[in-house]
Design a protein around this nucleic acid. Structure first.
Lengths: 83, 83
DNA sequence: CGCAAATATGATCATTGGATCATAAAACGT
DNA sequence: ACGTTTTATGATCCAATGATCATATTTGCG
């Protein structure tokens, strides 16, 4: 049940979920990541073309990392890909 | 053995590995992703602050997706984290 | 060794993100 | 319902990306 991202918007959503799961406000996360609350807000909503660097700063502040894997790698139990 | 990225540079390396694994040249990947060979080269070498959007274009062209997971998630057999 | 293919880079311009100030608007608790 | 906390946005400036042209290098192969 890890979070998957295929678009910038996905990243925004994942970031927001992770932040809330850790009970952090945008301001707190921003402080930890060394960016502004403004930036966190922007990325969580419309992270269109956010900079990779900033995204990694946020991921690090949330103790997350990216795993790059082939798309629709079927795991046992994933039936959706069959139909 | 998926590829892990914690920094922009990691992404560059992963992208390059994936591209070569698929026997593509920078130019071919660029064409598929709708960007310039120049951009692929830049991102593979010093993807410092590349735009998220561009990175996703490249990932899509390589049929890859991102899984966002907690850092140092220990898997059976990973002993490094113990010491 | 020499040529062809692939990759790295130079330069310019437009666009956009992030830094930074601030405040409006929305969400939440009691 | 009210007030406080949190999030969304407005505006400006600067740095840096990507688009786009081209060419210098490097790599790989016969």
């Amino acid at each position: 049940m890890d979070q998957i991202a295929r678009t910038p918007k996905d990243i925004g959503t994942v970031l927001r979920n992770a932040r809330k799961a850790q009970g952090l406000t945008q301001g707190e996360l921003a402080a930890r990541a060394g960016v502004w609350q403004r930036t966190v807000s922007n990325i969580e909503t419309s992270s269109s073309g956010a900079k990779l660097e900033t995204v990694f700063d946020l991921l690090a502040a949330l103790d997350l990392e990216l795993h790059i894997v082939p798309r629709s790698k079927m795991k046992p139990g994933d039936l959706e890909d069959i139909f």
